[in-house]
Amino acid sequence: MKPLMLQGHERAITQIKYNREGDLLFSSSKDNKPNVWYSLNGERLGSFNGHQGAVWCIDVDWTTTRFLSGAGDNTCKIWDCETGKEIGNIVTNSSVRTCMFSYSANMAVYTTDKAMKQPCEMFIIDVRNVDESISHQDPILRIPINGPRVSSILWDNLDESIITGHENGEIITWDLKTGKKMNSVKEHDSLINDMQWNKDATMFITASKDHTAKLFDAESLALLKTYKTERPVNSAAISPIAEHVVVGGGQDAMDVTTTSARVGKFDSRFFHMVFEEEFGRVKGHFGPINSVAFHPDGKSYSSGGEDGYVRVHNFDSSYFEYNLDY
């Protein structure tokens, strides 16, 4: 396959996300301009200019009309997808680490870091009508997180609950009616970098610094499968059409310069979802992969790396014909 290399960022990619139909690919990086691309030909549609710090998290709503981003400049911004104009700006006490629209996009959630003597907090806001007034509106719910900070987040159960992944490897489900913890497990030993749903949101996959990616049942938080690697895992995604899981990672960015790309294990690894067995690898990045995402049609996937590139891969026919021998 001939990947498309998207070179719109000056610093490490932090997150990439497809919209629901998969025609647009959003990317954010530690430079302060999230970008949006046509996934088919790699053409850049635009960049969202306005943040002053590293953009940590992005999300796009179901209809691809609004785009949400949270950054290290203590703001969380809502943008119009079509024009790239900022329509809402929320100033927070510390940097915004995770954000996500709810399934209906009537609400959104964001969490702030425990930093500058501020506690880690989770905010749920109403985003049905976004205008300038959103900056001084009160959130619907404000949940203080006592303990390790939130490092990844997912809306669950048709906007009735939220799943958070924490710095110490804990996963917690929150009930939004009461704002209380419903369930929690601690299957990971270290920071959970990323969580992503499968297609029908019955299971989700976590990517952790403890060198594993794990598959969980959404309702019970039961651990279903573990995918082991030798390096920290930064992101993992589940194929919407096959029982495949793609895992991206690599050693810590600070050690990269002292090792060659060959031993750095900067390849995307494909695991069989059920048998937990690795069956394929794709090389390409010069640094660790920070974010991976499957196209919603399952026929291509993208990865964004510490090297600042986003690579869009269209699978060869051999991938679809591949069967694991068992």
Binding site: K2, P3, M5, N41, R44, F270, F279, G284, H313, D316
Partner: peptide, 14 residues
Amino acid sequence: TTIVAEDVYMQYIT
């Protein structure tokens, strides 16, 4: 901003 990168192959570990 958009570059067609070199061909890469999935290495199958069969």
